[in-house]
Simulated scan of single mutants.
Amino acid sequence: MRIHILLFIGFLTLLSCQKEKFNVDQFHSIIPIVEIEEQEEWDKNPNWFQLKEGEGYRNYFRYNDHIYLGSRNIKNKPIDATAKDFWILSGTEYAKDKYYFFHPIGTSICANSRKYGCYCYFEDYIIGKFNVDDFVYLGEQYISNKDSIYFKGVVMKNVDAKSFQIHQFENKPNVTSSLTGEDAFDKFATDKNNVFMNDQILDEINSEGFYLEYDSINTQFFIGDSTKKYQYLFSGILIESNSYNF
């Protein structure tokens, strides 16, 4: 039995606070933020919407006509965007204003403060300055910009944008992460050359004949191609399966 494990360093980062990077005097208590609840139809029909004063959605919140990115218990430097021109794509953390597209990039940086406790923020969030007509949301946190594919705000390497396709388990249960509130499943996609798990190439499986299978009776998930089959577990774990049903 062979196990393939992808380590998620970001997960550990979210659970711990690193050494404080900013002086606590730069942070101030803020008013309570009203969180916008996720809507089930957003998964199939994302739409652009704006935050009202005192509202928050996922990692974004609006306060004093500025947009912030991170924990609600502190107010650090606002992101480089004008609140009245700031739009978020529902069901995602992609956002835009008149000039740029945004997404929290990488893992959050967390710090301890005697006054504010543990708080987290992102240093990087600007994806790039694109033509609005070139920005296409593909689903499952993937976007396309002409010849490039981005996953969660980061451009993917070694991908053929023209043949890129997203694959999903049919009729899988809805399982969300207790940390992020997002779908706990890894994302799968293919192009003419490779299979991708999230934004990384999955060498074990070929793109030709790639498939995802959900066994609802035994509550098991499988991925494979025309010659190989693996049981898929959460957090990027694949276990080679001895049984194969074409």
Rank of each mutant, 00 (worst) to 15 (best):
8 F>C: 06
9 I>K: 13
10 G>C: 09
10 G>D: 03
16 S>Q: 09
16 S>V: 14
17 C>A: 12
19 K>S: 03
20 E>T: 06
21 K>M: 12
22 F>G: 14
22 F>H: 15
23 N>T: 15
25 D>E: 15
33 I>Y: 08
34 V>E: 14
35 E>R: 10
37 E>F: 10
39 Q>G: 08
42 W>E: 03
45 N>S: 13
49 F>Q: 00
58 R>M: 12
58 R>N: 14
59 N>M: 07
60 Y>A: 00
61 F>C: 07
66 H>E: 13
68 Y>E: 11
70 G>P: 00
71 S>Q: 03
72 R>F: 00
75 K>E: 00
79 I>T: 01
82 T>N: 03
84 K>N: 02
86 F>T: 04
93 E>S: 04
95 A>P: 09
95 A>G: 06
99 Y>A: 10
100 Y>T: 11
101 F>V: 14
104 P>S: 04
105 I>R: 15
105 I>D: 12
114 R>V: 00
115 K>R: 02
117 G>Q: 02
117 G>C: 01
118 C>G: 01
119 Y>H: 00
119 Y>V: 00
120 C>G: 03
122 F>Y: 13
123 E>R: 15
124 D>H: 13
125 Y>Q: 02
129 K>D: 12
130 F>L: 00
133 D>S: 03
134 D>I: 00
135 F>R: 03
137 Y>H: 04
138 L>G: 13
139 G>V: 04
145 N>Y: 09
147 D>Y: 07
147 D>K: 06
150 Y>W: 06
150 Y>S: 06
150 Y>P: 07
152 K>R: 01
153 G>Y: 02
158 N>F: 15
161 A>V: 11
162 K>H: 14
166 I>H: 12
166 I>K: 09
166 I>N: 12
171 N>W: 10
172 K>E: 09
172 K>D: 08
174 N>A: 07
174 N>E: 12
175 V>S: 10
178 S>K: 08
181 G>S: 13
183 D>Y: 10
185 F>Y: 13
188 F>N: 09
191 D>K: 00
192 K>G: 01
193 N>W: 15
195 V>F: 02
195 V>G: 02
196 F>M: 12
196 F>E: 15
199 D>P: 09
201 I>V: 14
202 L>T: 03
203 D>N: 07
203 D>Q: 10
208 E>I: 09
210 F>A: 03
211 Y>R: 13
213 E>F: 14
214 Y>V: 13
215 D>Q: 12
216 S>V: 08
220 Q>F: 03
221 F>V: 08
227 T>S: 13
229 K>T: 01
229 K>H: 01
231 Q>R: 02
235 S>I: 05
239 I>H: 04
243 S>W: 06
245 N>Q: 05
